[in-house]
Nucleic acid binder design. Structure first.
Length: 771
RNA sequence: GGGCUCAUAGUCCAGGUCGGUUAUGACGUCGCCCUUACACGGCGAAGAUCCGGGGUUCAAAUCCCCGUGGGCCCA
């Protein structure tokens, strides 16, 4: 009997052949049905090379969701997109070409960004393809396409007309030397020498003075409160009292806040708009009214009184002089202060309130909480991230950004009266370079307009991904049959952004939840449990790894490494060694491929034993697959295949399958059972390792793809699982005894079969050559 | 600074809700073995005071409290 499979090991190069077959037969093409299961796949962001190996693992598992769903009979719509809006590509482009965004012509800069994105995107697409992602790769969408951006703009225009958008001040990081706003990601910190001024503040209706240390005395005019730590006894009796600000003489309240450190300065901190990010947070938290002390020209404003017009540095020198003259200074220390500066220009940045557009969200929080409760989270524990976030939202969502590579805010302003106008929805608009589509100002009838230059926060784009893929406002029938979508898979670090904003936007636009399930994956860390980053040098490039070990090995590693929802470590050595299991599966299949298929047979007790263990395995796998938790089936299948099926059952029935000393009926029962078990294992494993299971399935069992099969179901035969422990222990006992007596495994030995296992006697006798 | 989460052999992980056998499995290590699927293998062995401290209990890896360290998000 020649085995159908002759190669001795699974060769990952075969994956290419399988992939080709899938492509030729358009196996995963989506055809709209009455009922559809839509996956709101996260469009990954190409921010640089290499792509994160954790992301490769993440997308492998999202594909397992699609395959699992297909095998339960769902009509799966699995779109693939690439998120291309936002800051990282701007930074990447600036670095790559050694240019600055603000000093480059906008159109030219956008083209350079586009090129960079195309480049990075093609690598990601290649990785997804070779991982066997069964989604719409060949017609993937892009969030910077005209179609996508038109939808972002239309939804904005709709909300604008509903009065959901308004203008208000927002603190921006501002580099007044270059006259530009800086994103948080572009800030670094330098330790710069500076003066820490200990100032005497008077307590109202009292002779008492308190000392407050600050590096920014020029912001005294914008001081709104004084904070002390709640455990600081020195000020306990002063909490709630009014304090008089030196020079300006205004009254502010002293209150407690945990961010005040007892050890720093005097322990009392003045909170001004805005000395640093902590001030911004405090103004927000304590709902203080900001005072604009520094203007866009980088000079002190009128609010600074006699210091108006001076640059902050000059004002600081002057005010220190004045403070000293009026005996407000206790002492001055020269310290080294961690100062936020622009990463590029190294100029200290100022935090300056500027007018930005906001989308109302405070009114929606309760509704979103309700939606959140309706959505099933996998794992359940990560719903808490969303709920905590909803409890802590304190301001509306600032949606405008002073950047280039993003969806343009579609507004034109009347040159005469500055009235903003939005165009008709449905088209993609670029106000910074296009003529106004509005001809007359509705307010003053002016005819000249100037286009808005700002772009949206990228979450404005990505938060409508479920609407875009379901053809919202474009194909009503398609939308009706695919929305709300089935599941949102994503990583846990963006629950508070992507997941939350999607709920918000979809609720505002459709009044419905965007999906019924949310599937949250943990974070990929390096082999020591540290975050991977290019700068630390511990980033692992997924492409060479996948090329070396193959997609299936990588995917099985991904499923078996950590339980769903928890962070996981990426160790190349662990990935390499996962290959051993695929080898095992391959060789089991190779062995079985030498036996013909048997239509039906009457199982013996040994067969019934493994079949009832198989049933147990099927149930266990279902428990995992129901929750799209692939760790559960991966571990269970490996355990069963290796330690029960291969190590015990196959050894027990080998002689019987060859027909040595057994009747044809007994022989057929063994062969029937062997194939029954293997074919079931292949189906159970198909969502996790689609290549090897497809190859083996088509070689052994069918010309039809395994990915068209329905998942195996338990058949509830008699329960023999209570024998398992005794069977494996008895086999071990014989092996041990032969070893200790220096016998070869094929030598005869006299060992009594335990009473309980007597029904298996014939198989044991042939297996161990018992005399 | 706040929230969430994790900590079990050299490494990774199970068990933890609902306290009670000898704490699961894999990788790695070591020893023996070519046995008609597999040496990319088989069999066997060694290896864990379950992060530290306290508490509840007849009994704690498991429940509670306090630390320490890692991760993520927010500030």
């Amino acid at each position: 009997m020649d085995p159908k499979i002759s190669e001795k090991a699974w060769n990952p190069d075969l994956e290419q052949q399988v992939l080709k077959k899938w492509e030729e037969t358009n196996l995963y093409d989506f055809v709209l049905a009455e009922k559809n299961y839509t996956i709101d796949t996260p469009p990954p962001y190409p921010s640089g090379r290499p792509w994160h190996i954790g992301a490769a693992s993440h997308y492998s598992q999202i594909d397992m969701i699609a395959r699992t769903a297909r095998m339960t009979g769902k009509n799966v719509y699995f779109p693939i997109g690439i998120d291309r809006n936002g800051l990282p590509v701007e930074l990447y482009t600036e670095k790559k070409h050694n240019i600055r965004m603000r000093e480059t012509e906008r159109g030219e800069f956008l083209n350079l960004c586009k090129e960079a994105l195309d480049d990075l995107e093609s690598e990601m697409i290649q990785i997804m393809k070779s991982l066997g992602i069964s989604g719409g790769i060949k017609d993937h969408y892009r969030t910077d396409s005209e179609e996508y951006r038109a939808l972002t703009q239309s939804t904005f225009i709709e909300l604008w007309k509903k009065g959901q958008i308004y203008l208000a001040n927002r603190p921006n990081n501002y580099d007044w030397v270059s006259g530009t706003t800086i994103a948080d990601a572009e800030i670094t910190y330098l330790d710069l020498p500076t003066k820490l001024v200990y100032m005497k503040f008077g307590v109202k209706d009292s002779e008492r003075k308190i000392i407050i240390a600050s590096t920014r005395p020029e912001l005294l005019c914008a001081c709104k409160t004084i904070i002390v730590n709640e455990e600081d006894e020195r000020y306990a009796d002063l909490v709630g009292k009014k304090i008089l600000v030196p020079i300006f003489d205004n009254e502010v309240e002293i209150r407690t806040h945990h961010s005040a450190q007892k050890e720093f300065g005097s322990g009392a901190v003045m909170v001004c708009s805005y000395g640093d990010q902590n001030d911004v947070a405090l103004f927000r938290e304590l709902k203080l009214e900001e005072i604009v002390a520094i203007g866009l020209d980088g000079k002190m404003t009128e609010a600074a009184g006699e210091y108006a017009g001076l640059k902050p540095k000059q004002a600081r020198a002057k005010i220190i002089e004045d403070l000293e003259q009026n005996n407000f200074v206790e002492k001055i220390e020269e310290i080294s202060h961690r100062t936020p500066v622009s990463e590029r220009s190294k100029n200290p940045i100022e935090i300056i309130p500027m007018e930005e557009y906001y989308l109302k969200q405070m009114d929606s929080v309760e509704k979103i909480k309700g939606l959140g409760k309706e959505i099933t989270f996998h794992p359940e524990m990560h719903k808490q991230i969303l709920m905590n976030w909803l409890d802590s939202i304190s301001i509306d969502w600032p949606i405008s950004r002073r950047r280039y590579y993003g969806t343009e805010i579609p507004i034109w302003y009347c040159k005469k009266c500055s009235e903003p106008h939005v165009p008709e929805p449905g088209k993609y608009y670029r106000p910074w370079k296009e003529e106004s589509p509005i001809s007359n100002c509705s307010k003053c009838n002016g005819t000249e307009f100037v286009g808005e230059e700002r772009t949206f926060d990228t979450w404005m784009d990505s938060s409508i991904s479920p609407l875009f893929v379901t053809k919202f406002q474009k194909d009503e029938e398609f939308f009706k049959k695919t929305y709300p979508t089935g599941i949102r898979p994503q990583a846990k670090d963006i629950v508070r952004t992507w997941l939350y904003y999607t709920l918000l936007r979809c609720e505002q636009l459709t009044g419905k939840k965007p999906w019924s399930e949310a599937w949250i994956m943990g974070y990929g860390l390096d082999e020591k449990g540290m975050k991977m980053s290019k700068s630390k040098g511990n980033a692992l490039d997924p492409l060479p790894v996948i090329e070396r070990i193959g997609a299936d090995t990588f995917r099985f590693w991904s499923a078996s490494e950590a339980n769903h929802g928890y962070d996981f470590r990426c160790s190349e050595q662990k990935m390499d060694s996962t290959k051993k299991f695929l080898s095992k599966l391959w060789n089991v299949s190779r062995f079985l491929s030498s036996f013909p298929l048997v239509e039906s047979a009457t199982p013996t007790d040994t067969d019934k034993w493994i079949l009832s263990e198989l049933d147990k395995l099927i149930s266990e796998c279902h428990k995992g697959y129901e929750k799209y938790n692939f760790f559960v089936p991966a571990i269970a299948i490996r355990e069963f295949t290796w330690n029960l099926f291969a190590a015990n059952y196959i050894e027990m029935v080998k002689a019987r399958a060859y027909g040595i000393g057994f009747s044809d009926e007994e022989k057929n029962a063994a062969i029937f059972t062997l194939h029954k078990v293997l074919s079931t294992i292949l189906k159970l494993l198909a969502p996790i390792t689609p290549f090897i299971t497809e190859h083996l399935w088509q070689t052994l069992y069918s010309n039809e793809s395994i990915h068209k099969q329905r998942q195996a179901q338990p058949e509830s035969p008699e329960d023999y699982t209570s024998f398992t422990k005794e069977i494996t222990e008895f086999n071990s006992k014989v092996w041990n005894e032969k070893k200790s007596k220096g016998l070869s495994l094929k030598d005869t030995i006299a060992i009594d079969i335990p009473e309980k296992l007597s029904v298996f006697s014939k198989d044991f006798a042939s297996m161990h050559n018992l005399s």
